[in-house]
């Protein structure tokens, strides 16, 4: 099997690392690396180049958010799936802004986890209702008159994101709105893309401000 999906599991709890690794292997995934800390994760990612990183956010430094940003900067075609126990909202939101395309809580069943890895590997986004509500709230927060249209949600995107937050599955949304499953998927992906775009714009703006300050000093 040469086309097995290559996965790395990052979790500082051995029992979880083993359980997830076992499940993935049993389901036919190729677990090329496991890591317990942020540093290990980044180093082993560079050595093995997995397609999917299953990542716990609460790991020893550097944090899961930093690991997400670093590995995706190294290899933009890789995908990060957040598997989190405590679901600290700020961290989850930060990881998604840093480029993670999936989020699932540890209390999810094995089938849900495997389905999430499969979908993330395919390039789809995996939203829980909780994550959809966070993203929705974030767009409401940043929705100001001066926000460029490219960083705002369209009415359709808001509608679909809201349905995801209310627990509708993509297939049900497609049926209800009489659109294709792919279209629903695209809309959800667009919301993430816009959120990440907004994040990059904010970071750039911040960098420019810092840069200007330095010029004034110099």
């Amino acid at each position: 099997m040469t086309d097995r999906i290559r996965v790395m599991v990052v979790d500082d709890h051995p029992m979880w690392r083993d359980a997830v690794e076992r499940d993935l292997q049993a389901a036919g995934y190729d677990v090329v690396a496991v890591a317990a800390t942020g540093t290990e994760a980044i180093n082993r990612f560079r050595a093995t180049r997995p397609q999917v990183v299953v990542l716990d956010l609460q790991i020893p430094e550097p944090s899961g958010v930093e690991v997400t940003a670093t590995v995706l900067a190294d290899e933009p075609s890789s995908r990060v799936l957040i598997l989190s126990a405590s679901g600290e909202q700020d961290d989850v939101l930060a990881a998604v802004k840093a480029g993670a395309t999936g989020y699932i809580v540890k209390s999810a069943s094995r089938e849900e986890l495997l389905a999430a890895v499969r979908r993330v590997a395919r390039g789809d986004t995996v939203f829980t209702p909780g994550l959809a509500a966070l993203v929705l709230g974030e767009f409401r927060r940043i929705n100001e008159p001066e926000t460029p249209p490219g960083e705002k949600l369209t009415d359709r995107e808001t509608e679909i994101l809201k349905m995801v937050a209310k627990g509708w599955e993509y297939k049900q949304i497609a049926e209800r709105l009489v659109i294709s499953h792919r279209t629903v998927q695209n809309h959800v992906q667009n919301t993430l893309r816009k959120l990440q775009m907004h994040n990059r714009v904010e970071l750039t703006r911040y960098a420019i401000e810092q840069g200007l300050d330095e010029d004034e000093d110099g």
Binding site: M15, W16, A85, S86, K106
Partner: peptide, 21 residues
């Protein structure tokens, strides 16, 4: 508290998952 809570949540989630299986 975060460290402690995280540890407890991890175990609870694992028990829930394995129990269901």
């Amino acid at each position: 508290a975060r460290v402690v809570h995280d540890g407890v949540l991890q175990v609870l989630a694992l028990v829930q998952r394995r129990g269901g299986e």
